[in-house]
Design a protein around this nucleic acid. Structure first.
Lengths: 132, 132
DNA sequence: CATCTGTTATATTCGTTGTATAACAGATGT
DNA sequence: ACATCTGTTATACAACGAATATAACAGATG
């Protein structure tokens, strides 16, 4: 999978990494059971420190997206993804409300907003386009 | 309008302030032309520093949600809200994609996600419930 | 036994967040 | 005139987070 980082972004690198891996799983470019690069090789590939990658992996593990095996490496959780927990629902609400509120302020129609969300949903689930 | 701050949150205070004012406008608890408390009085009300409120106000002004008049105070933009600019669309995509991707990972159905977005949209536009 | 894996421990640099004072400049009300 | 309100600006400081840089440890593998 191709990782794109924006070093100018105010979004932390480890967060960008987490987001891209999660989107990779959502788009089935990464399948459960599939191995991810080691912290050291990924770090050197994308030109960041080992600890930055390790932080992303550790957080993804805590949330249940991946498993980390001591001397075998990092693997997309073969037991499936975490479900819709109450904690997750709260996090999702905290993320969605401000976005929706701003859309309303700017005069975005409800159907228009839903259309946008739907199109992103489709865009993500339709990829595995791996080859660009 | 009632401001609720979570001092334990990892979301910066000035961001929480911006979000709540934007949601206040979206829910019509705050109308265009309406005056907001001065930086000093709001800061003392919610128990934070003057500069923290000032930062929120300054950013809201830069984005066009409010106007700041030198010696008269801060007012919700009476000329209307900012529209759907390309910059805004990019920001919105950057905010939405990770949320949608995680929802997909966790097995959230498209119609379920749309239902959630719609219910938040309705919840915000249906308030002015001011009295709790 | 060298080499790979994740893990842990320090230390350092840098930017952001939030606070704390202080002062300035213009408008308003008495 | 004068006190008082407004936003604004300038510093300084403490605390934290992000990212880097080394180094070392522990277990598995070839």
């Amino acid at each position: 999978m191709i990782i794109r980082l924006d070093m100018q972004s105010d979004v932390p690198i480890y967060t960008q990494l987490m987001n891209q891996i999660i989107e990779g799983i959502a788009s089935k470019q990464l399948a459960p059971g599939e191995y991810l690069p080691s912290v050291r090789s990924l770090a050197s590939d994308i030109g960041v420190n080992l600890h930055t990658v390790n932080k992303a992996y550790t957080l993804l593990k805590q949330e249940g997206f991946i498993q980390i095996h001591r001397q075998k490496g990092v693997v997309v959780n073969p037991d499936g993804m975490p479900g819709i927990t109450p904690d997750y629902q709260h996090k999702q609400e905290a993320q969605l409300r401000p976005v929706i509120a701003e859309a309303i302020c700017r005069g975005m129609d409800k159907t228009e907003l839903l259309r946008i969300v739907e199109s992103f949903y489709d865009e993500i689930t339709q990829e595995p386009k791996e080859n660009a």
